[in-house]
Simulated scan of single mutants.
Amino acid sequence: MTEVFAALADRGPAAAAADDAAPPARSFWRAHTAGWIFIALFGLASRMATFNDLALALTITLIVDPIGFGLTALAHKTILARPLHRPAVIVGLVVLCSILGGLLQMAIVNVVKDGLFAGLDRGSMARADAIPVIYYTAVFLGWSLAYFWIRADVEARSERARRSEAQAAAIRAELQRLRLQLDPHFLFNALNTVAVEIPDNPEAALEMTHRIAAYLRYSLDPQTRPVCPLSEEIEAVRAYVRIQELRFEDRLRCVVEMDPRASAVPVPHLIVQGLVENAVKHGLRTCIGPLEIRIAARRLDDDAVAIEVTNPGRLVPRTDDRPAVGLANTRRRLELHYPGRHELTLIQEGETVVARLVLKGTACFA
Results as ranks from 00 to 15, higher is better:
residue 7 A to C: 07
residue 9 A to R: 06
residue 9 A to D: 07
residue 17 A to M: 06
residue 23 P to E: 03
residue 28 F to S: 00
residue 49 A to C: 11
residue 50 T to G: 04
residue 51 F to T: 05
residue 52 N to R: 15
residue 61 T to M: 11
residue 69 F to Y: 11
residue 74 L to Q: 08
residue 78 T to F: 09
residue 91 V to N: 12
residue 93 L to E: 15
residue 95 V to Y: 15
residue 104 L to N: 10
residue 106 M to P: 04
residue 112 V to W: 05
residue 121 D to L: 07
residue 124 S to F: 03
residue 147 Y to L: 05
residue 151 R to T: 03
residue 157 R to W: 07
residue 159 E to A: 12
residue 160 R to K: 11
residue 161 A to F: 03
residue 162 R to K: 06
residue 169 A to N: 13
residue 177 R to K: 04
residue 177 R to N: 04
residue 178 L to V: 08
residue 184 P to W: 11
residue 190 A to N: 08
residue 194 V to L: 01
residue 195 A to H: 10
residue 195 A to R: 12
residue 198 I to K: 02
residue 199 P to R: 07
residue 200 D to Y: 00
residue 203 E to P: 06
residue 215 Y to G: 06
residue 217 R to G: 14
residue 223 Q to K: 12
residue 238 R to E: 09
residue 239 A to N: 13
residue 240 Y to W: 07
residue 242 R to D: 04
residue 244 Q to Y: 00
residue 245 E to A: 00
residue 251 R to M: 02
residue 268 P to I: 02
residue 269 H to C: 01
residue 274 G to Y: 02
residue 275 L to F: 06
residue 278 N to D: 04
residue 279 A to N: 11
residue 280 V to K: 01
residue 282 H to F: 12
residue 284 L to G: 01
residue 290 P to Y: 11
residue 296 A to S: 12
residue 302 D to E: 09
residue 306 A to V: 12
residue 308 E to T: 11
residue 311 N to D: 00
residue 314 R to W: 07
residue 322 R to V: 15
residue 335 E to H: 03
residue 336 L to A: 02
residue 337 H to A: 10
residue 344 L to E: 08
residue 350 G to H: 01
residue 351 E to S: 10
residue 353 V to Y: 05
residue 357 L to N: 09
residue 365 F to P: 01
